[in-house]
Design a protein around this nucleic acid. Structure first.
Lengths: 201, 201
DNA sequence: AAATGATTTAATCATCCGTTTAAATAAAAA
DNA sequence: TTTTTATTTAAACGGATGATTAAATCATTT
């Protein structure tokens, strides 16, 4: 957290790490300043307030986290299963690099109603996507009442994201260590698309 | 939040509601006192400190949330699919009554390492359960390396819990209202066991 | 009724925490 | 160099917040 970064970036990096780990309310501006190795006043000098700094980081996190969805959802050259596979792989890789990002986003989204939800998901209307059309074709109109494509989205995201959110609990329940957990996440890149396809049969 | 409850319970009810909605750090003792309609000092009189009050509520939440698991996991009269069905139904009902409980538990578990994780999951060792034996029998020894029973646990819990955690996001993505969301959760009581069974084929 | 103990209240303390200020230093422009 | 602007620092402000105190009220016992 030092070297030749600009002061602004040192603050942002430290803030991102601490916000993600502890959440907005539990994060103290002094913790950020200490972790960044800068004077406390610089935080306000560069970002005006803790709130503004948080919003900036939150927006960037949302962008990073949802940037793939848009593209994959509307890929014209990829099949359904390929889309599931792409999503599983890219998200599992991404979350491995920033393990706290899902729970961070989801819990702050809960605590700060609307503020971010609106901007995040306007981009991603399921019904307007090619994925949706492909789902319709696969499921068939007659089964549509029973199995709303949103079920499939819930399943896909749940299967990808939940293991990371529930990790401390799951590792204990299953008596697996970190290495084994990583292996399982690697397996899931192939398993999840298969499972989702089975659901559509 | 009034009537003939004891003062202690008025505080606990208010605290539970606010802790669940906002998390530990964002919850102020004065908010709890106001919501409970009691004098601020009474909180410390009955519970010593905010931290102690929180721990008590957290422990009770964990107990409630995991009490079914133990029983269902070790039911001797129920088949695999019946166990999945029981878990899905009881958890979906339970979460509907306290929608914030999953994200509350999972995010506080992250913010407060170990403190609770240890006590929570000692009770629930997957390998010691009847469910585990039934899974082994169904999956078969040869496929065990590929599909660890923990995968199935991740899937089951992810499919049940994630829709509630991601609800604000999912409702926007899928353009469904609260009533429709509830209907879908009702459908999932039957769908989830089916999906899980398909994964085992 | 008096005495004892439990509960509740108003007020205050002490610390924390986000933010600001004013001065000092460094960098850039003139 | 001198002047101006940008960055950094130490110190402090003021409100919020968890906790405590001492007195008041209520309930129970004798």
């Amino acid at each position: 957290m030092s070297t030749d970064l600009t002061t602004e970036d040192k603050i942002k990096n430290a803030a991102r790490e601490i916000f993600m780990k502890k959440g907005y309310a539990a994060t103290k501006t002094r913790d950020i300043a200490d972790a960044a190795g800068i004077n406390l006043a610089l935080l306000n000098y560069y970002f005006r307030s803790k709130e503004k700094l948080f919003q900036q980081i939150m927006m960037e996190s949302l962008t990073v986290f949802f940037q793939h969805i848009q593209n994959v959802f509307n890929g014209e050259q990829t099949t359904l299963e390929e889309k599931f596979s792409l999503l599983a792989s890219s998200y599992i890789n991404q979350i491995r690099e920033q393990p706290d990002i899902p729970i961070f986003i989801l819990s702050e989204l809960r605590a700060r109603p609307d503020e971010f939800v609106s901007q995040m998901s306007v981009q991603t209307r399921l019904k307007d996507s090619i994925l949706f059309d492909q789902l319709l074709e696969k499921i068939g109109k007659e089964r549509m009442m029973e199995i709303n494509p949103l079920h499939i989205m819930m399943n896909l995201m749940g299967l990808i994201v939940f293991p990371f959110i529930g990790r401390p609990m799951l590792e204990r329940m299953g008596e697996v260590d970190d290495a084994h957990f990583d292996l399982m996440m690697e397996q899931r890149k192939e398993l999840i698309p298969k499972w989702i396809m089975q659901m559509l049969e």
